[in-house]
Amino acid sequence: MVYKIRDKETGKVYEVTIDEETNEITVYDVKTGKPVKTVNMTIEELKEAGYEVEPV
């Protein structure tokens, strides 16, 4: 599923895909559409880390 996340401190917005089964999150560069990095976190962990998470 695709989400937009926003860093509450910097205001930067990222587009991510989240595999609900493995909790693998792939972060994409919004301008190029290319993957930047992959992390292993849940949506709740993202929120605790200071991100706003919205489904696209």
Rank of each mutant, 00 (worst) to 15 (best):
M1A: 10
V2S: 13
V2T: 11
Y3D: 02
Y3H: 09
K4T: 09
K4W: 14
I5S: 00
I5C: 08
R6T: 15
R6D: 00
R6F: 10
D7V: 03
D7E: 09
D7S: 08
D7G: 01
K8V: 08
K8R: 10
K8T: 08
K8D: 01
K8I: 10
E9S: 12
G11D: 03
K12Y: 10
K12H: 10
K12C: 15
K12M: 14
V13C: 10
V13G: 01
Y14N: 01
Y14C: 15
E15A: 10
E15Q: 12
E15M: 15
E15V: 15
V16D: 00
V16I: 15
T17L: 11
I18A: 04
D19A: 05
D19F: 07
E20R: 11
E20P: 14
E20Y: 12
E20D: 08
E21R: 12
E21L: 12
T22L: 11
N23F: 07
N23E: 06
E24N: 10
I25H: 01
T26F: 08
T26D: 01
T26W: 06
V27P: 00
V27S: 03
Y28H: 08
Y28F: 09
D29Y: 02
D29A: 02
D29S: 05
V30M: 10
K31I: 15
T32A: 04
T32F: 04
T32Y: 04
G33I: 01
G33Q: 06
K34P: 01
K34G: 04
K34C: 14
P35F: 12
V36F: 09
V36P: 02
T38K: 13
T38H: 08
T38P: 02
T38S: 08
V39Q: 04
V39S: 04
N40L: 12
M41Y: 06
M41H: 04
T42A: 03
I43T: 03
I43Q: 02
I43F: 09
I43L: 13
I43E: 02
E44L: 08
E44P: 06
E45M: 11
L46T: 00
L46C: 05
L46G: 00
L46F: 07
K47L: 14
E48I: 10
E48C: 08
E48D: 11
E48K: 12
A49T: 08
A49W: 11
A49V: 08
A49I: 09
A49L: 13
A49E: 07
G50S: 03
G50M: 06
G50C: 05
Y51D: 01
Y51R: 01
E52R: 03
E54R: 05
E54D: 07
P55C: 10
V56Q: 08
